[in-house]
Amino acid sequence: MLVIRVELWPGGDKARARTLAEASVTDMSGLSDVSDYHAMALEHGSDVTGLPDQAGGFMIAQHPRRSSVWLLVAKVALRAAMRFTPERRAAR
């Protein structure tokens, strides 16, 4: 399982860190060269954005395992952003 955590460190101070969002990504294809993943994402509510706590799951299909981990992180981040952004929800 891959765990992604987005933290804010006010003024670069780790002691004041707070988690803004998290995701866990699970391989569903038995470590195949091209794999399908299930992601569970959570975004904590924010006074800045006005958005509430949000959570949901989705699939990342046919991802090439031999690519940089950043490609998988980018796909997860994009899918979560599309799911949790009010303008995208209204367009569905």
Rank of each mutant, 00 (worst) to 15 (best):
D53H: 13
S67M: 15
A81Q: 07
I4S: 03
E43Y: 01
R83G: 01
A17P: 07
A23L: 02
R66S: 11
A61Q: 12
M59E: 07
L2S: 05
S67G: 05
D53F: 05
L42R: 05
R89D: 02
G30K: 10
G56T: 08
L2K: 13
L31E: 13
S29V: 03
A39R: 04
L51V: 05
I60D: 11
L42Q: 02
G11Q: 11
L20H: 05
I4M: 09
E7C: 09
S32H: 05
L42M: 07
A74N: 15
M40K: 12
S67Q: 12
M82I: 14
L20I: 11
M1S: 15
G50F: 07
A55K: 12
F84Q: 04
V76L: 06
W70D: 12
S68L: 04
E43L: 03
S32E: 11
W9Y: 10
P86G: 00
A90Y: 08
K14R: 13
G12H: 08
G11V: 01
S24E: 09
G50V: 06
P52F: 07
M40L: 15
L72K: 02
G12V: 08
K75E: 14
H44F: 14
T85K: 06
R83A: 08
L42T: 10
G57H: 06
L20D: 02
R92T: 01
S24G: 13
G12A: 02
G56F: 02
Q54D: 05
I60S: 09
S68R: 14
G56W: 12
S32W: 01
A17E: 14
D36I: 02
H63P: 13
V73W: 00
R18W: 01
A21L: 09
T26N: 11
G12D: 03
A21C: 07
P86Q: 05
